[in-house]
């Protein structure tokens, strides 16, 4: 089981010929992910080569359009490395081609583009994860994104986070404690994204292979508060949490476009209080995420 991705997921990399796209496509193939196609307009007909986990060469056809890529290869998921100003267009192209899952790694997409893209995806049977996220991994089965595969271990804890490296921190702690992960989902650090905490928590709730969750939030917006409401009302499994940005000054964007306290809203204090009230055990420091979760199992 696990959520969103597994060993059967067939992936197109949009922007596979670019520097980030080609580097990470190779890493994903080496992990064992089924990368079945690439898409870069003007580069259709080329072949992208990478080494599989067994060291054997994998030949990946490159297409000009997503419609062709999906039609020719039966891909059902896409991963986007297209530069920021063209990325929203690529999201819509993947959705139109019939991908059920679109994972946008690209950082720096204008918020107006994301507002339009979200509107265009309304009513469509497609899940967008990200943008500005590390991607999704089901350890041992499928890695779509930029996370270091080797720190993960197959198991039963779900991880969901707005931050990339902080997710690695949590995963590293879990693995060091001998606790494996079912699926790790980076929802991204942008103010307007495709999938939020509640969406992922719902999937973890239904997944028989997930027995507990680490949820990592940060300052800005109210996604954590909404997650707390959902957890309180519906979530059946233990949740350990962490919120980054207790010491962040108001009015300053802390790296991520969405990590900003504005008008006194979106503080770490409010989010921690909401999570505590929902029965989530919030780790006192980022070094304690793994042990906090372990204490609840």
């Amino acid at each position: 089981m696990a959520i969103l991705v597994n060993k059967n997921t067939r992936v197109v990399i949009q922007g596979i010929t670019g520097s980030a796209g080609s580097f990470h496509a190779k890493q994903c193939v080496a992990y064992g992910t089924q990368i079945v196609a690439g898409c870069t307009p003007g580069r259709g007909g080329e072949t992208f080569e990478a080494d599989g986990p067994d060291g054997k060469k994998v030949k990946i056809p490159v297409f000009d359009t997503m419609a062709d890529a999906v039609k020719q290869t039966g891909a059902d998921a896409s991963c986007i490395f297209v530069p920021a100003l063209g990325a929203a267009d690529s999201i819509l192209e993947a959705a139109d081609a019939g991908c059920r899952l679109v994972i946008a790694i690209t950082e720096g997409i204008p918020v107006m583009d994301m507002i339009r893209a979200r509107r265009a995806l309304e009513g469509k049977n497609v899940r967008l994860v990200g943008p500005n996220c590390p991607g999704v991994i089901t350890p041992g089965e499928c890695k779509i994104g930029i996370m270091p595969g080797h720190i993960h271990k197959p198991g039963k804890i779900g991880v969901v986070s707005r931050s990339g490296t902080l997710t690695y921190e949590a995963v590293g702690q879990l693995t060091a404690l001998g606790i494996g992960q079912s699926t790790c989902v980076g929802i991204g650090g942008d103010p307007v994204n495709g999938t939020d905490f509640v969406d992922v928590l719902k999937m973890f709730n239904e997944d028989p292979n997930t027995e507990g969750v680490i949820m990592i939030g940060e300052i800005g917006g109210n996604a954590e508060e909404r997650a707390a409401e959902y957890i309180k009302a519906h979530f059946k499994k233990p949740v350990a949490g962490f919120i980054a940005g207790t010491t962040a000054p108001p009015g300053k964007r802390m790296g991520h476009a969405g990590a900003i306290i504005s008008g006194g809203k979106g503080t770490a204090k409010d989010k921690i209080a909401a999570l505590n009230a929902a029965g989530v055990k919030v780790a006192p420091t980022p070094s304690d995420m793994g042990t906090t979760l372990k204490s609840m199992l």
Partner: peptide, 30 residues
């Protein structure tokens, strides 16, 4: 000096947690 925005923020937090005061937020990127 940290890589990643979330880790950079929480590095500030953990310094404060142990009684120090961070002088800056700095994310060197991926």
């Amino acid at each position: 000096l940290v890589n990643g925005a979330g880790l950079a923020m929480s590095t500030m937090d953990i310094i404060k947690h142990f009684g120090g005061e961070p002088a800056n937020f700095l994310d060197v990127g991926g």
